[in-house]
């Protein structure tokens, strides 16, 4: 794996809230085409790391290099433009829009039509609109909820909402797809279906960053895993090594009695 080109590099990223150090100089490297897991106990700084990377937070130190160029902090829409898409731990869909519309909005960053196009509805705009709709329908089919296309997002079941959020993220054509605890609250069957979906996405060439509590899922799915504890990187390696590292066990179980 180590010969693959680097897609994302975090360089000594630091973030604190008041006196709390949420991230202490975290450096890690994600390579193209891999599924990269980020795990750690609650409050270890995983989501904070996500938020720094996707531009929701401005890091207090360090920065990110993505696909060969630095990421600008404090501009989430830029991150999506560059090819980073994400889902949220507590699902953030546009509840009063239909499933299809949710995915159609996801095409925003890859389409052009402006106000004048919308008002004049010229040929180019109509073609683009049709392409947006077609792609959105394909994506709903891809994640397996095409039969719910016209339902309001908030009326979907929990598992379908997770899928819809992934479809919306995929609509932005990401190079890197970041999933924040996608299996949270899912039962065994749903988790298994999710695993299949993620493997499919990876097989289609999208790199995946996965934050997850379900250690079994992470270890089975990821090519490499990083462990955060108290905002610091404990280890970054293949699952087999991480699993048996005493520091990791300590971080999860607490100081060995």
């Amino acid at each position: 794996m180590s010969d693959l080109p680097v897609l994302l590099e975090a360089r000594a990223v630091a973030k604190h809230f008041g006196g709390v150090k949420a991230l202490r100089d975290v450096s890690l490297t994600i390579r193209q085409g891999e599924v990269y897991g980020l795990i750690g106990p609650n409050g270890a700084g995983k989501t904070t790391f996500f938020n720094c990377m996707t531009g929701l937070y401005v890091p207090d130190g360090g920065g990110f290099v993505f696909a060969g160029a630095p990421l600008v902090a404090d501009a989430p829409h830029r991150a999506a433009e560059r090819g980073i898409a994400r889902t949220f731990q507590n699902i953030r869909l546009f509840g009063n829009m239909t499933a299809l519309e949710n995915v159609m909005v996801g095409r925003h960053v890859r389409t052009r039509a402006g106000v004048f196009g919308a008002i004049l509805r010229n040929g180019a705009t109509r073609d683009e609109e049709a392409a947006i709709r077609r792609r959105a329908e394909e994506l709903l089919h891809y994640v397996g909820i095409d039969d719910r296309a016209d339902d309001l997002a908030k009326n979907l079941s929990y598992g379908d909402q997770r899928r819809l959020e992934i479809a919306r993220a995929l609509a932005t054509e990401p190079k890197l797809l970041c999933l924040d605890e996608p299996a949270a609250g899912m039962n065994g069957t749903e988790t298994e279906e999710l695993r299949v979906l993620i493997e499919g996405i990876r097989a289609d060439g999208t790199t995946i960053l996965l934050i997850e509590h379900d250690v079994k899922l992470v270890m089975g799915l990821c090519d490499r895993v990083a462990v955060l504890d108290y905002g610091a990187l404990v280890i970054e390696d293949v699952p087999a090594v991480v699993q048996h590292d005493p520091r990791v066990i300590e971080a999860y179980i607490g100081v060995a009695a």
Binding site: P76, H77, A79, R92, F94, V105, G106, H108, A169
Partner: peptide, 16 residues
């Protein structure tokens, strides 16, 4: 409409 529904999610999918 996306901004009205959830501004953070709208930003995250690349809406300026």
């Amino acid at each position: 409409q996306a901004i009205r529904e959830d501004e953070i999610a709208a930003k995250a999918i690349g809406i300026n």
